[in-house]
């Protein structure tokens, strides 16, 4: 075991995957000599050279389009989109091509790749360095969408994603890139992509969170405990296909549900989670499900800490939901 932050853990996973399988190629803007703007690919260029750690022209559509071709050839591209806010020029390739290749070719071809991209706010990044666009990808049939919250999961889930036969969108919560630290085993291990984690047990209310907001949920749960409310906190880890069994089991236990995400409220992933819980556990609910999310505005700069669903907004939701009759 070694203490690592998420940047180090993801870097370690990339290095292990590239040493193990020469088909793995890292590509993107500034991923080479400089090691990425967040240094996630640091040192890979020196070890694997510029044929496998490729600084590309500044075009996300070109990066993903070329990665599709590489995947069709049989490589395992791990393209980086420098900020998820800049992924939209590649949206056509992701939606029309990456997600559909297996299906549209009757299973003849796959466009298997792992698209890594930092997400989320709280880093003073304004509109274009802060967004959390998971819903736009969960809605597309054929993609897997993951968002680990800690170094152990980040390494294990990235290795699982690279080994997975399907295309994976790997969202990295950049606010906790260096803040989240923990013990990480050396060498190869995987964390399965289909399982959520109950990271705090409680019987009064369930809070579902992921990425950087997990820590806000845990903070609020700790404060609620001081007032006698025991909160169960579920870290989704994989957003889609979601671990519905863990969610339903927790809701059946607590009867009360709060969903936390940074993305805007309307048509956010929370909407889908509430619907799923209503379809599968409606009669176990003892209070209306609640969403604590970003607002339906563009992501703001100065007021970002008011926009984000931080602990100070989650705590009252926990208390109100737990006490609702």
């Amino acid at each position: 075991m070694t203490q690592m932050n998420m940047v180090q853990a993801i870097n370690d996973a990339l290095r292990i995957a590239m040493r193990k399988d020469e088909r793995v190629v890292v590509m993107g803007e500034d991923v080479g000599k400089v090691g990425g703007v967040f240094r996630v690919t640091s040192g890979l260029y020196d070890e694997f050279g510029d044929a496998r750690v490729v600084d590309t022209p500044l075009s996300e559509g070109g990066i993903i389009g070329a990665a599709v071709g590489m995947a069709l050839y049989g490589m395992i591209p791990v393209p980086e989109i420098q900020f998820s806010d800049f992924i939209w020029p590649a949206y056509d390739q992701i939606v029309s091509e990456v997600a559909k290749y297996r299906y549209r070719s009757g299973g003849e071809y796959t466009s298997k790749m792992v698209i890594r991209t930092p997400v989320g706010g709280g880093i003073r990044g304004g509109h274009y360095h802060s967004q959390h666009p998971e819903a736009q990808f969960i809605h597309v049939a054929g993609l897997k969408v993951v968002c680990p919250s800690n170094p152990y999961d980040a390494k294990g889930m990235l290795l699982a994603s690279i080994a997975d036969p399907d295309p994976v969108l790997f969202f990295e919560p950049k606010r906790v890139y260096r803040a989240a630290k923990g013990d990480v085993p050396e060498g190869e291990y995987t964390v399965p992509l289909e399982s959520a984690a109950v990271v705090r047990e409680g019987q009064h209310v369930t809070v579902i969170a992921y990425g950087a907001m997990l820590y806000e949920a845990l903070d609020a749960a700790q404060k609620a405990a001081e007032q006698g409310i025991e909160t169960e906190v579920v870290d989704l880890r994989t957003l889609w296909p979601v671990d519905i069994e863990t969610i339903i089991a927790s809701v059946k236990k607590t009867g009360r549900l709060i969903i936390v995400h940074e993305a805007p409220k309307t048509c956010g992933f929370g909407s889908e989670l509430v619907s799923l819980v209503c379809e599968k556990a409606f009669y176990h609910l003892e209070a209306p499900p609640v969403r604590v999310t970003g607002y339906d505005t563009p992501f703001p700069y100065t007021l970002e800490m008011e926009y984000l669903p931080l602990s100070h907004r989650i705590l009252p939701a926990i208390l109100d939901t737990a006490r609702a009759v």
Partner: peptide, 27 residues
């Protein structure tokens, strides 16, 4: 589609196959 003929997969969006051919050749 016809992988046996080393022929890709047809889609309707315009131009998407162009970068894919580049990526394939690059690989």
């Amino acid at each position: 589609t016809c992988k046996a003929a080393q022929f890709g997969s047809v889609s309707s969006p315009i131009g998407t196959q162009i970068t894919q051919a580049v990526g394939f050749a690059w690989a």
